[in-house]
Amino acid sequence: SQTQRTQDENEARRIAEEWKRRGYDVEVRNRNGHWEVTWD
Rank of each mutant, 00 (worst) to 15 (best):
S1M: 13
S1N: 10
S1T: 12
S1I: 12
S1P: 14
Q2T: 11
Q2V: 12
T3P: 08
T3R: 09
T3I: 12
T3G: 07
T3A: 08
T3M: 13
T3K: 09
T3L: 10
Q4D: 06
Q4I: 15
Q4K: 12
Q4A: 13
Q4Y: 14
Q4E: 09
Q4S: 08
Q4F: 15
R5D: 06
R5E: 08
T6K: 03
T6S: 07
T6G: 05
T6Q: 04
T6D: 04
Q7H: 12
Q7C: 15
Q7V: 11
Q7N: 12
Q7E: 13
Q7I: 12
Q7K: 14
D8G: 06
D8S: 11
D8L: 05
D8W: 06
D8A: 05
D8M: 05
D8E: 07
E9M: 05
E9R: 04
E9A: 07
E9K: 05
E9I: 07
E9Q: 06
E9S: 04
E9H: 05
E9W: 09
N10L: 12
N10D: 13
N10M: 13
N10T: 12
N10V: 11
N10H: 11
N10W: 12
N10P: 07
E11A: 07
E11G: 03
E11H: 07
A12I: 03
A12E: 01
A12Q: 02
A12M: 03
A12S: 03
A12G: 02
R13W: 11
R13Y: 11
R13G: 03
R13F: 09
R13K: 10
R13M: 09
R13T: 05
R14H: 05
R14F: 05
R14I: 07
R14N: 06
R14W: 06
I15Q: 03
I15S: 02
I15T: 03
I15F: 04
I15W: 13
I15L: 12
A16H: 02
A16M: 06
A16W: 04
A16P: 00
A16I: 05
A16L: 04
A16Q: 05
A16F: 05
A16K: 06
E17Y: 03
E17C: 11
E17I: 04
E17H: 03
E17M: 05
E18I: 08
E18D: 11
E18P: 00
E18R: 06
E18V: 05
W19R: 08
W19P: 02
W19V: 09
W19Y: 14
W19K: 13
W19M: 15
W19E: 05
K20H: 10
K20Y: 11
K20L: 14
K20G: 08
K20N: 09
K20R: 14
K20I: 13
K20M: 12
K20Q: 13
K20A: 12
K20T: 09
R21I: 08
R21Y: 06
R21F: 05
R21H: 11
R21W: 04
R21L: 09
R22H: 09
R22E: 10
R22G: 06
R22F: 07
G23N: 02
G23S: 01
G23R: 00
G23F: 02
G23I: 00
G23P: 00
G23Q: 01
G23M: 02
G23D: 01
G23T: 00
Y24W: 06
Y24Q: 03
Y24S: 02
Y24T: 02
Y24E: 02
Y24N: 02
D25Y: 11
D25A: 09
D25E: 12
D25H: 14
D25F: 11
D25P: 08
V26K: 01
V26L: 02
V26C: 06
V26A: 07
V26S: 04
V26E: 00
E27A: 10
E27R: 08
E27P: 00
E27W: 05
E27C: 13
E27H: 13
E27Q: 13
V28K: 00
V28W: 02
V28H: 00
V28I: 12
V28P: 01
V28E: 01
R29G: 04
R29A: 10
R29S: 11
R29D: 04
R29M: 10
R29I: 14
R29V: 13
N30I: 13
N30L: 15
N30H: 14
N30V: 12
N30M: 14
R31W: 08
R31A: 11
R31Q: 10
R31N: 13
R31M: 13
R31Y: 10
R31V: 15
N32S: 07
N32Q: 08
N32M: 07
N32W: 04
N32D: 14
N32L: 07
N32F: 07
G33K: 03
G33I: 01
G33L: 03
G33A: 03
G33M: 03
G33S: 05
G33F: 02
H34Y: 15
H34M: 15
H34V: 15
H34G: 09
H34F: 15
H34K: 09
H34A: 12
H34N: 09
H34L: 14
H34R: 08
W35P: 00
W35Y: 05
W35R: 00
W35M: 01
W35S: 00
W35Q: 00
W35T: 01
E36T: 06
E36I: 09
E36V: 08
E36A: 02
E36M: 04
V37K: 01
T38P: 01
T38H: 10
T38L: 09
T38Q: 09
W39L: 08
W39A: 06
W39I: 14
W39V: 11
W39P: 04
D40K: 15
D40C: 15
D40T: 15
